[in-house]
Simulated scan of single mutants.
Amino acid sequence: MTKLNENQIINIFQKKLGNKKFVSEDVEKFTLGKTNIVAKTDTMVQSTDIPNKMELSDAARKSVIACVSDFACKGVKPEYGIISINLPKSIPKNEINNIVKGFKNACKEYNISIIGGDTNEGKEIVFNVCIFGNSKKIVTRKGSNKGDLIFTTGPFGYTSVGLKILLGNNKKMNNLIKKSIKSVTYPKPKLNYGLKNKKYFTSSMDSSDGLSTTLNEMAKQSKKKFVINKIPINRDLENYFKKQKNDLNSAVFHGGEEYEFVFTIPSKFKKIIIKNAKLLKTPIFEIGYVAVGNGVYLENQNGETKLKDLGWRHFK
C-alpha cells in the first residue's frame, strides 16, 4: 500500500472536487450575490495538536486563533464563526466549561460572533472552527517584486522550546521557559497590524506551519528569490540556544506553531510600517529582501545557502 503525504492527499481532493486551477491561499474568498465573503476553517485534534500539559480552555481558544491568524495576514476582519466539536462521552462537565471558556475568550478578544455549529461523540476531542469576514480584496501570497523588503511580525523560536517542554518532563521554570510555553498555549495574532497596514503589503502569509514553509511558498507563488540576511530572534532566546548548543536555525525556521505572519513591502513604505508597529506595540523584524530568481536563501559573510522547506507536514 502506497503511503501518501499531505500534499498528495490535498492534490487528490483538488482534482476531484475543484472546477478551476487551485492556488494555495490562507483563506477562501467568494461572492454570494453582491457580498464578498472571506472564510477560513481549521481543525484541532487532541492526539496530534493538544499536548497533555495544555489546558483545554487554551486549546479551544487556540483553535479560533488559528483562523484569526490567517485573517490577520490577509488584512481582513473576522466577524462570524461556526464551531463543531467532537467529544468523548465520558468528558466531565468541568472540562466542557473550560472548552466553552476558551472559545468565549478568543471570540471576545477578536470581536467574533458565534452563530452556530455542531456537536458529535467520538473517541477524542476535536475542534473544527470556521470563521467568516467581508472584504473585497485580500493580500495574497504572491505579488512580491524585486527590491521589496521582507518582514515578520514577532520573533521566532520560542514555540520550538515551548513544545519540547510541554511534551517532555522538564520541571525547571524561568522567565524564558514561561515565555516559550505561553507562545504555544496562548498565541496572539497581530490582527490590528494586518488591518492597518494591508495597503502597503505586496504579499503576505501566515507562518504557523514554520517560517521556512512560509518563505518558500511565498517565493514560489511570486516566482521570485527570497534572500534572508537577518534572523528574527530575540537576544534571550539566541543566548539560550548558544548555551544549550542547540541548532538555532532549525528552531527559528522549522519550528512552527508561531501564529505570526510574513509580509513584503516596497522599500518606500518602510518608515510608515515601522511607525505603525510602534503605535500598535507590534514587534516586527526586517529579515531580508526579494530578488530575481527562485527559492529561499540564507545570506551571510560566507555567501548564500538554500533554505529548504522543512516546516510542519501531516502524514510524514
Rank of each mutant, 00 (worst) to 15 (best):
C130E: 14
I131T: 03
I131D: 02
F132W: 04
F132E: 03
F132P: 01
G133Y: 00
G133C: 00
N134Y: 13
S135P: 00
K136R: 09
I138D: 01
I138G: 00
T140I: 01
S144Q: 06
S144Y: 06
N145Q: 14
N145G: 07
G147I: 05
D148L: 02
L149G: 00
L149T: 01
T152M: 08
T153Y: 10
Y158M: 09
Y158N: 07
V161A: 02
V161Y: 04
G162P: 01
L163C: 11
I165C: 03
I165T: 08
I165K: 06
L166R: 12
L166E: 10
L167S: 14
L167D: 14
N169V: 06
N170W: 09
K171L: 10
K171N: 10
K172T: 07
K172D: 04
K172Q: 05
N174Y: 07
I177M: 12
K178G: 03
K178S: 12
S180W: 07
S180C: 11
I181R: 07
I181D: 02
S183I: 07
T185Q: 10
T185M: 08
Y186C: 12
P187F: 11
P187G: 07
P189S: 07
L191G: 01
N192S: 12
Y193W: 11
G194F: 08
K196Y: 13
N197L: 11
N197Y: 06
K198W: 06
T202C: 07
D206A: 07
D209T: 14
G210Q: 11
T213P: 05
T214D: 07
T214P: 05
L215N: 02
N216H: 11
E217I: 15
A219L: 08
A219H: 03
K220V: 02
K220G: 05
Q221P: 02
Q221H: 08
S222W: 03
S222E: 05
S222K: 06
K223A: 11
K223T: 09
K225G: 08
V227M: 14
I228N: 04
N229C: 09
I233M: 09
I233L: 08
I233Q: 06
N234M: 13
N234W: 08
L237M: 10
L237Q: 04
N239Q: 13
N239L: 15
N239R: 13
Y240K: 02
F241Y: 15
F241E: 03
K242E: 13
K243S: 11
Q244V: 05
N246Y: 15
N246G: 12
L248F: 12
S250R: 15
F253Q: 03
F253M: 08
F253L: 13
H254Q: 13
G255E: 10
G256R: 13
E258D: 15
E260G: 03
F261H: 02
F261W: 06
F261R: 00
F263V: 00
F263H: 00
I265A: 00
I265R: 01
P266A: 12
S267A: 12
